[in-house]
């Protein structure tokens, strides 16, 4: 495991597909709740199926991560940085799973049908409860803002590794061979 420099191909594929989906989802979400135009309905129609797809892929990704692990960070990185990197990944996994679940729970508590697409409606996961709906609705927003913040930190960290440190950490998520001179230093 310690010799491996790359994430597994499945992990890399899931990472980049989900990166696009989650960023799109966050932008759709904030644009949607600030809209009273015809776009509102179209954005809601994208938001729900995309959220459920992210939830399903996040579980697949979690299983894959547990099963196939991740390349270890370079030992040259200070302990503090490694701790931050590790906990930010835990936060990303938690939020990827929690956000769609809170959305689903929120719609259930608000007695909205959880319509996904083309007549497919998911069962509610909570009984109707307006007060709980209001709390979950607020939680959904705060978790989404939190996820966006962690993603910004994640992107910044990735770019620091890829462009400044050039230590192979960023390349572990790519298909291109890293310029390996960093390993020799």
């Amino acid at each position: 495991m310690s010799e491996r420099k790359y994430f597994s191909p499945l992990a890399r594929g899931l990472h980049w597909i989900m990166a696009l989906m989650i960023l799109a989802m966050l932008f759709i979400g904030v644009a949607m709740v600030a809209s009273t135009g015809p776009a509102y309905h179209r954005l809601v129609g994208l938001h729900r199926p995309l959220g459920i797809a992210i939830l399903a892929l996040a579980f697949l990704r979690l299983v894959n991560r547990v099963a196939s692990g991740a390349p270890s960070l370079p030992t040259t990185l200070p302990q503090g940085i490694r701790l931050i990197a590790g906990s930010s990944q835990v936060a990303l996994y938690l939020l990827m799973i929690a956000l769609p679940l809170v959305g689903w729970a929120m719609l259930s508590a608000g007695d909205y049908p959880v319509s996904i697409t083309g007549g497919v409606t998911l069962p509610p996961i909570l009984s109707p409860d307006p007060a709980l709906y209001a709390s979950l609705r607020a939680l959904h927003t705060w978790l989404a803002l939190g996820l966006f913040g962690v993603i910004l930190a994640h992107i910044t960290g990735a770019l620091v590794h890829g462009l400044l440190l050039r230590d192979g950490v960023f390349q572990a998520m790519l298909w291109r061979r890293p310029q390996v001179r960093t390993q020799i230093e």
Partner: peptide
């Protein structure tokens, strides 16, 4: 669409 969006907001507020 406007009613849908505003009702959702009203529902969240009053709930």
């Amino acid at each position: 669409a406007a009613r849908s969006a505003v009702y959702a907001r009203s529902f969240t507020a009053r709930s």
